[in-house]
């Protein structure tokens, strides 16, 4: 009985995916992307497509390069080789007289306006109130007027349940609350792709739930593509349309959450998941 339900779910997901794939082009595309830090080859040729609205979970052991993948998409880390495309347009390169050359600041800014990110350490601006944290970028980057930005920020803060904290400073909030503000701050910019980099790793266990709940809620809305890195396997499974397993700088296995978690193919993925089941983490 359980199996048949899962099978049906799996089929449904596949169908949904196929339908999306037929209709649209990937919003994010990695083509043979590599990255080396010193002597350490972190990524050894990544090929990955993310569809508009798709929820993708990236799992893998620590040091497998998960964070580097999304940091490159946020333009925080430059790839050594390969191309990352956003809506069909190269992110780190631009075309000049038919040649792909290194992108300048202007190009980077234009393309990365489609990407948003929530960090492990929240990175709220400590010198601004909660409200200003959420209105500063809309005002100064998107050119919104103050009133409009405040309305939008308030709507988001209400959504994450922190409308009563608007005049507080980040240091007056708990970790979970800060992370919820960080999510609201990123949402206000209305990115097409949102990146979550182990957003609950720095939190107290009792505040993890509230943050996951918010992300789940956003995911349900569906418009935005999301790439999640998390060590919360239940959450990864729950929220994702597709799960990708990263090991030693390579994407070694991918599939629906059911395929990955119920029927892992490679031995390494099996042992990785087993370690989580035993509760020892990565």
């Amino acid at each position: 009985m359980i199996e048949t339900t899962q099978e049906r779910q799996a089929k449904e997901t596949v169908r949904k995916k196929k339908k999306i794939a037929a209709e649209t082009k990937p919003i994010v595309r990695y083509l043979d992307v590599t990255k080396t830090f010193g002597d350490l080859e972190v990524l050894k040729g990544i090929n990955l497509d993310v569809m508009p609205g798709e929820k993708l979970s990236l799992i893998g052991p620590s040091g497998s390069g998960k964070t580097t993948i999304i940091r490159m998409l946020m333009t925080l880390e430059e790839p050594d080789s390969g191309i990352i495309e956003v809506e069909g347009e190269p992110l780190w390169h631009m075309e000049v007289n038919g040649n792909l050359v290194r992108a300048d600041q202007k190009h980077l800014r234009r393309v990365r306006s489609k990407i948003g990110m929530v960090f492990q350490q929240f990175n709220l601006f400590p010198h601004m109130t909660i409200l200003k944290n959420c209105t500063s970028a809309p005002i100064h980057v998107l050119g919104m007027n103050k009133k409009e930005a405040e309305e939008r920020a308030m709507a988001m803060l209400e959504r994450v349940g922190l409308a009563d904290k608007v005049n507080n400073y980040p240091s007056q909030l708990s970790g979970g609350q800060q992370q919820r503000v960080a999510i609201a701050r990123a949402l206000v910019m209305e990115p097409k792709v949102m990146l979550f980099d182990e957003v609950t790793s720095a939190l107290d266990p009792e505040t993890v739930g509230e943050v996951l709940e918010i992300i789940r809620d956003i995911a349900k809305e569906g418009k935005m593509a999301m790439i999640l890195i998390t060590h919360e396997m239940d959450f990864a499974r729950d929220i994702a349309d597709r799960v990708v397993f990263l090991e030693d700088g390579m994407l070694t296995e991918e599939g629906t959450p059911e395929q990955i978690f119920e029927n892992p193919q490679s031995e390494r993925l099996q042992s990785f998941l087993a370690r989580f089941r035993n509760g020892s983490g990565s």
Binding site: M74, R109, R112, F119, N123, A137, H140, V141, M189
Partner: peptide, 11 residues
């Protein structure tokens, strides 16, 4: 992280 957040918000 402050630099990174300011890049992510596209300042």
């Amino acid at each position: 992280g402050q630099w990174e957040a300011s890049i992510a918000l596209n300042y």
